[in-house]
Amino acid sequence: MVRTMIRPAVPADVPVILDLIRELAEYEKAPLEAKATAEQLHAALFGPHPAAFAHLAVDDESGEPVGVAIWFLNFSTWHGVHGIYLEDLFVRPAARGRGHGKALLRELARICRERGYTRLQWWVLNWNAPAIDFYRSIGAVPMDDWTVYRVSGDALGALAGEPAA
């Protein structure tokens, strides 16, 4: 049986985290959209004011990182406490089905409980049936009564009052 070690990322992990992010972008059929650089990732995770956090799933047999969870804090005005928003959860295809993803989620749930956070939440692409099935198997429920909105690119500039390009 494969065992998983979950550990917080350290600065030396930035290259492998970047590789995992790119592999996730490939899986999600958007390889050209993953534009983060090692410098940006290092600043976000390990700079003076970290904006995000990462945990790695490391295969005990090989010692190699096989998965990553990248997350940040959100805040519930109704509960008055933080929660964890999981930005990315990715396990390399060859390592799937061995408990690495569940171990990463278990660690984030443990952090929530330890710190008094009331929520662990994330988005999933509608076409990603394997992920949806997995999430439901651990008790996650879809928030069907909410719709995600995003402003980016030229629309973001216009909203900010910038002149049109």
Rank of each mutant, 00 (worst) to 15 (best):
G80F: 01
T77W: 02
V148D: 11
L41E: 08
P15G: 00
P93R: 09
E114L: 14
T118M: 05
R3P: 00
P15F: 01
E23Y: 05
H49W: 03
I6C: 06
A44I: 02
A160D: 05
K102C: 02
V14E: 09
D60M: 12
P11F: 03
G97I: 01
E114I: 05
A36G: 13
L105Y: 04
L89P: 04
H100S: 01
H55A: 07
Q40A: 07
H49S: 14
G153P: 08
A36E: 14
H100F: 08
P163W: 04
P93Q: 10
G83R: 01
R96F: 03
G153A: 10
G97L: 03
A9I: 03
T77A: 04
N128H: 13
R7F: 07
L108H: 03
D154N: 08
V68Y: 06
L32Q: 15
E107D: 09
V91P: 05
T147M: 11
V2T: 15
I84S: 01
H79W: 08
N74L: 02
M143Y: 07
G161Q: 03
L73E: 13
R136G: 15
D13R: 10
A44T: 09
V124N: 06
V66S: 13
W122F: 14
W146L: 15
F90Q: 02
V66L: 05
G83L: 00
A69I: 03
L89G: 04
G101P: 05
A140G: 15
T118E: 07
G83Y: 03
A109N: 02
R22C: 08
I138F: 14
R119V: 08
R98N: 05
F72Q: 10
S62G: 05
A69V: 04
A12N: 11
G139V: 11
M1L: 11
W127K: 06
P93W: 10
A109W: 01
Y149M: 14
N128D: 14
N128F: 09
R113Y: 01
F75C: 06
A140T: 12
I21A: 09
L105F: 06
H100N: 00
P31A: 12
P163Q: 04
D133I: 09
W127E: 07
V151Q: 08
R3K: 14
W123S: 13
A155N: 08
A38P: 11
